[in-house]
Each structure stands twice: as C-alpha cells, then as structure tokens.
C-alpha cells in the first residue's frame, strides 16, 4: 500500500503540519510520498524531501496551484490516486477546502480530522465539538483523510527523497483568484506555537486587545489567539480564532484571558498541556479545564503577571 501526503506550505516554506501528517501516514504504510502543489515552490519540495521516511516528492506547479484553488489541486491529485491507496492532508483551512472535493471525485468518504490511526482502515476522530470521539472503519478502496496535526508528533529530518515533477492539471477554469489579504506577524504561528496567549470578549476593543495581549505574548514568545466573540467584534483578525470552527491548538502552555470557556472554544484548546485562565468570574466554565486559575480582573492580573515574569527573569 502506498500513501500520498499533500504538503501544507505557502509556496515559500513548508509548514510543520506536513511533518505531523507524515507521521500519521507512516502509521498506514512505509511507502509515503509527498505532493507539493504550488508555484515557485521548489524550495518547499526540497524541504519535504528531507523529512525522514519519505520515499519521493512530487512537485506540481501552476498559478492556480500557487493560489491554492480547490479545483486545481483536485485536478492534480485525482489522476495520481491510481498509484495510491490513501491521501492524507493536514486539516488546515486549505486542506479542508480541497480534500472533500478529491474524495467526492473518487466517490469515497472523507474521514475528517483524524486524531489517531488504529489500523490502515480504522481511525479515531472528534465529533460534537470534541465532546465525543468516534472510531470509524472505512470500506472504501481509497481513503481520503484530513489529519488534525496537533494529535501527531512531527516526523524528523534526515530524509533524502528525490523531487520529481508531475502534471499541473488544467487549473481552475471556473474560478478566478482576485487577491489575498494576509496578516503579517513576526510572532510564532498559532497552529504550531509552544505558547499561546488568547484574549476574549472582556477586552472590549481592538486597542485594548493589543494593549493587554501583545506585550504578554511578546514576553512569553507566544502566538496570539482569540475567542470567536473577540474576532466577531473585530478585536482580533479572523485567523486568530481558536475553537471548534477555528484553529485547533495544543501548545505546552495556553493562557486564556477574559474568555468564558464555551464548548466551542474548549474544542480548540483543551488538549493543551497546561491551561491557565484569568477571569473575574470564579464560576466561568474555563476554570473546569484550567490547570491554574486566577480569579481576578485582567486589568490588574495581567500587569502583575508581567511583573512576576520579569522578576522570574523573563
């Protein structure tokens, strides 16, 4: 059995979720290839070849692939699948966009956001905002799977797989890319960060969110997250949203400030190693999952935390 992993990247660099997806793929088979679909993405393909355990890297390039258009990626992957028994994609917004399209073209189910490989046809996945874990066994000839990267360890470096070009397909004739507005940040990426500091509705404004959350994140070398309420209100950009329908994170340390801990928020962070909650309401549900809870107004607690960190040499 051979398995294809579709790389997560931004045409310039390979994302760590790819390494984690390779680990899931290696639990299915030792014959794992990676597809890099992009444009000007040769360096990404070379980086993919260095992942330990990878057999070869396929590189498909076109403008539409560089823009990540679902139709274009599907057109590349579907013909390749005659040589593979499974295709695994990290469950990022990109992967979630094209992977089900590939599944339907192959007339198979998609097994979404797996967190465990039981055997080559049996997988565990969260349902109902992570309040239940479903073990499913697939009867399809080919498996199309998205992988929750936080549930798998990253495959190491040390591979030396060759890079081969493959057909770029016929693009996305019915979709035109208009533009992309990306938030630039020098901070670590939310999805793979070791420490995440998140702010909620309590911040009250974008200015306050930045005044309170940014310096603490900087001090801790943390990525920034937010609750849906904070994003909806415009305090933080959309891709900061942690939760059932946003990003799923599992850092070493997650600090929730002024977040109540709704089911949908917990779904995105309850697998963090250590959870800290700062909330003025002692009954807030976030305290039920917090390892360390501080019942306090963030307006006093955060400055005190900054001082205590400084005193501890941070």
């Amino acid at each position: 059995m051979a398995v294809l992993v579709i790389a997560d990247h931004d045409n310039a660099s390979l994302k760590d979720s790819t390494h984690k997806t390779v680990t899931a793929a290696l639990a299915l088979s030792s014959d794992v290839d990676i597809l890099v679909a992009g444009s000007g993405a040769k360096a990404v393909a070379e980086a993919a070849g260095k992942i330990a355990g990878v057999r070869k890297v396929l590189l498909a390039e076109s403008d539409a692939l560089g823009q990540g258009l679902a139709e274009a990626v599907t057109a590349v992957v579907v013909p390749l699948m005659s040589g593979y028994d499974a295709v695994l994609t990290p469950a990022t917004s990109q992967g979630k966009n094209f992977s089900p399209r590939i599944a339907a073209k192959l007339d198979v189910a998609q097994i979404s956001e797996i967190v465990e490989v039981v055997d080559a046809s049996t997988f565990v996945r969260p349902i109902y905002a992570g309040n239940a874990l479903e073990t499913v066994q697939s009867s399809d000839a080919k498996k199309v799977i998205t992988v929750r990267a936080t549930a798998f360890k990253a495959a190491g470096e040390g591979g030396s797989a060759s890079v081969e070009s493959t057909g770029a397909g016929d693009g996305a004739p019915k979709t035109k890319f208009v533009d992309q507005q990306l938030v630039k940040s020098a901070r670590p990426e939310l999805a793979g960060a070791k420490i995440v500091v998140s702010g909620g509705r309590a911040m009250g404004s974008a200015e306050e969110f930045q005044r309170v959350i940014d310096p603490l994140a900087d001090k801790l070398g943390a990525a920034i997250g937010a609750s849906r309420a904070a994003v909806d209100a415009g305090y933080a950009p959309n891709d900061y949203q942690v939760g059932q329908t946003g990003k799923v994170v599992a850092p070493e340390l997650y600090v929730a400030i002024g977040i109540s801990g709704a089911i949908q928020h917990l779904a995105g962070m309850k697998d963090s190693k250590i959870i800290v909650a700062i909330n003025k309401d002692a009954d807030a549900p976030i305290f039920q999952v917090a390892d360390f809870g501080l019942v306090s107004d963030y307006k006093t607690a955060v400055p005190e935390l900054m001082d205590a960190l400084a005193a501890a040499g941070k």
Binding site: E134, V136, I275, D291
Partner: peptide, 17 residues
Amino acid sequence: LKVVKVTEPPKRGGGIK
C-alpha cells in the same frame, strides 16, 4: 464508514486556583 464505537474524550485532571 462503519462506526465501531463512540467514546468520551479523556478528562483533564483537576486544576487549582
């Protein structure tokens, strides 16, 4: 897909204030 079983996720250990 055949649902083999549906289970509860592991509970987090109790924290402290």
